[in-house]
């Protein structure tokens, strides 16, 4: 096992993001009451703590649901609005298990937004793209060796999400940024199907 593989194998702080489709017009502030309602009803995974409104910002999280394990956020990095789930607390299991669990948590939350009454069905996520990033520059420096070490595990997740899809991976090139990979497939499944596949 390479050093990079050993390092990435201990990675815990994984964040995954799905993107809103082109037709969705969403004011992130509309999600604030939804997140509060999720806390009241324990609608999503985790110990849900509070909602932070960063909708005044032009980059990064816009509205954030803080949990003990990490956070959910309507996120706007790169000018692309989407839903991100960032895991911070340690989990048991192999990296592949942790990645799978994070994806399941994210897709479940995405489905809840898509079907939320107060959002009137305005929210649709595209199933053909998934961004994964590592909030840990020690275990996952943004270098080619990290990509090579991470690729098999990530591709395993992608093959679960889209077994018949042809996924291409693009790594963020700036070494100072977090290690991140954008996976894009030639076709995308709806979130309900992804949810079933990840169950």
């Amino acid at each position: 096992m390479t050093d990079a593989a050993a390092r990435i194998g201990t990675l815990q702080r994984i964040a995954l993001k799905i993107f809103l489709d082109e037709e969705t017009v969403l004011d992130p502030r509309d999600v604030i009451p939804v997140f509060h309602r999720w806390i009241q009803t324990s609608a999503v995974d985790g110990l849900l703590i509070d909602v932070a409104d960063y909708s005044h910002m032009t980059s990064g999280p816009s509205v954030l649901l803080a949990t003990h394990e990490g956070y959910y956020a309507i996120e706007q990095s790169g000018g692309r609005l989407g839903l991100q789930y960032a895991r911070r607390a340690d989990q048991e299991g192999e990296l592949a298990d942790r990645l799978h669990a994070a994806a399941r948590t994210l897709v479940k939350a995405g489905r809840l937004l898509e079907t939320n009454d107060t959002l009137d069905g305005r929210v649709r996520f595209r199933g053909d793209q998934l961004e994964c990033l590592a909030n840990d520059r020690l275990r996952a420096p943004n270098r080619g060796e990290t990509m090579e070490a991470f690729r098999p595990t990530f591709e395993r997740l992608l093959s679960t999400m889209g077994p018949d899809d042809d996924w291409s991976l693009t790594q963020e090139i700036d070494e100072r940024e977090r290690f991140s990979v954008l996976a894009t497939s030639d076709s995308g499944a709806a979130l309900d199907l992804l949810e079933a596949r990840l169950r």
Binding site: Y54, H56, M57, T58, S59, G60, P61, S77, E177
Partner: peptide, 10 residues
Amino acid sequence: LSLGDLSGWQ
């Protein structure tokens, strides 16, 4: 900076 906030990327 609106409310004194900026993202890590910024």
